[in-house]
Computed example of a mutant assay.
Amino acid sequence: MKSLRSQPDLKLLSTFLAVVDRGSMAEAAAALGYVPSAVSQHIAALERDLGVELLVRRPGSRLILTAAGRALAQAARRLFEATARFQDAAARIADRDIAELRVGAYPSAMSHLLPGVLAALRPRRRGARIRLVIVETHEGLPRVTSGDLDLLIAYRYLPEDPPTPSADWNVTSLGHEPLVLVAGPRPDARPWQLADCLAMEWTSGHARSPDRRLLHRWAGELGISPEVTLETEDLHSMLAMIGAGLAVGLIPATLLGEGGDRPRVERVALPPEAAPLHREILAVSRPGVRHPVVEELLALLAEALRGARA
Rank of each mutant, 00 (worst) to 15 (best):
S3D: 11
T15W: 01
L17I: 00
E27P: 05
A31V: 09
I43W: 03
A45H: 03
D49P: 00
R57F: 08
R58K: 08
R58D: 07
S61C: 09
L65P: 02
T66M: 08
A68D: 14
L72S: 02
A76S: 14
F80W: 07
F86Q: 14
Q87W: 08
I93G: 00
D97V: 12
A99C: 09
E100T: 14
G104F: 11
Y106R: 10
A109C: 01
A119L: 13
G127R: 11
A128K: 02
E136P: 03
V144H: 03
D148S: 07
D150G: 00
Y157F: 13
L158E: 14
E160Y: 00
S166A: 05
D168G: 05
T172G: 06
G175R: 03
P187L: 04
P191M: 08
A195S: 09
R208T: 15
R213E: 14
L214Y: 10
E231W: 08
H236I: 10
M241K: 05
A244H: 02
A253W: 03
T254F: 09
L255P: 02
R262F: 15
R262W: 15
R264T: 15
V265Y: 10
R267P: 11
V268A: 11
E273K: 06
L277P: 09
I281H: 07
I281D: 07
V289N: 10
R290T: 15
E295R: 13
L298P: 05
L301H: 08
A302R: 07
E303P: 01
A310L: 03
